[in-house]
Simulated assay, not measured.
Amino acid sequence: MNVVAKPVPIFTALSFGLAWLFALPLWFTGGLTNPFFTVFALAMMFTPAIAALIVVFFVEKHPDARSRRAALGLGSVRPVGRFLRYLALALVIPPALILAALVVGALVGVYPADFVNFSGFEAMLDSQLEALGQAPLPIPIGLLVAAQFLNVAIGALINTIPALGEELGWRGWLLPKLLPLGIVPVILISGVMWGLWHAPLILLGYNYPGAPGWLALTAMVGMTIVVGGVFSWLRIRSASVWPAALAHGSFNAAAGFSLIFIMVGESFDPLQASILGWTGWLVPLVLVIVLLATGQFRPASPQPVVTRNESAPVAGSE
């Protein structure tokens, strides 16, 4: 625990302090309506990575590039088959969880869904085209909905770089540091930290507009705990931060699904519905519990080191 005692508080202070510093201009220049909001939000996403890099270089003082990469989860991706498998899961699982959240919300009655005619999405597109002085697109709405899944895949790849700004800190560096505490405490602690780190934006009304700040931040923490548990599983099983970063990018790319499947003329409370609300946490929570119960959070077996006089072993199970 002595290893954790010094670097973790320094990382926490840096990541939280820099997040507030980067977001502070929004508090004095229009908040979410600031025309450069996206720029400030993207800059904030890199603060956990900056904090992790400072700790690795100047607090832990790793002696070489290889040990620094390993400390950040950027080491070897071998065996390649395992790495690619978890990359594929990282691309697919977050959109699936977001869709499942909408289905659960619809079943509970807090999300007014239209999974057949996509009336809300069609009305939104028509409104946007009308504002541009254009006629509605002569394309079946179902085809346009299907195209959104391709957009999510493309968006996931693009979003991976800013997502790495967060994941390099939370899952890349911090998660292995906390692992001696046990996997459940790791999921809870890192999830709470990840959620509270969003405070500079959440308290401005981001994600939960109109909700009291304390309630919005509590809801954000609930979401980051369960979703962070899934990202943690990808990080641990792949022995790399990249699947967690891709999952984060895929998650952000699919966030707009709640607008695609909503009933025309309806709205929903993000505290109740979508992946942001309590009904959206149920499926990822069940997934994390199943993964825990089946031992899927055990670290992946390290890749054997082959010396010059040895032959490479036959590939086996993880």
Rank of each mutant, 00 (worst) to 15 (best):
H248G: 00
P284N: 01
S311N: 06
L102Q: 05
V3D: 11
L175D: 04
A156C: 04
V39T: 11
L217N: 11
I260H: 01
D269Q: 13
L24T: 04
S250E: 07
V305N: 04
V290P: 04
S258T: 14
A247M: 05
M263H: 14
F121M: 09
H198V: 05
L196E: 07
V108R: 07
G105Q: 03
L18E: 03
L143K: 14
L246C: 05
F22E: 06
V290E: 07
N309K: 15
P138D: 02
R66V: 12
A293W: 06
L204H: 15
A43C: 06
S240Y: 10
S238W: 07
M220C: 02
A247R: 09
R68S: 14
V314Y: 02
P136T: 15
A239D: 10
L215P: 15
E60P: 06
L201Y: 01
F121H: 09
I202A: 02
I93P: 01
R68L: 08
A146T: 09
L107F: 14
V4G: 14
L107E: 07
F16Y: 12
N309G: 14
L181C: 03
S240P: 10
W233E: 09
S274N: 14
H248P: 00
L42S: 09
L259E: 15
A245T: 00
V77R: 15
T279Q: 04
F57Y: 15
L14W: 13
A211P: 00
A113S: 10
M263R: 14
P185A: 05
S258D: 11
A101C: 06
G73I: 03
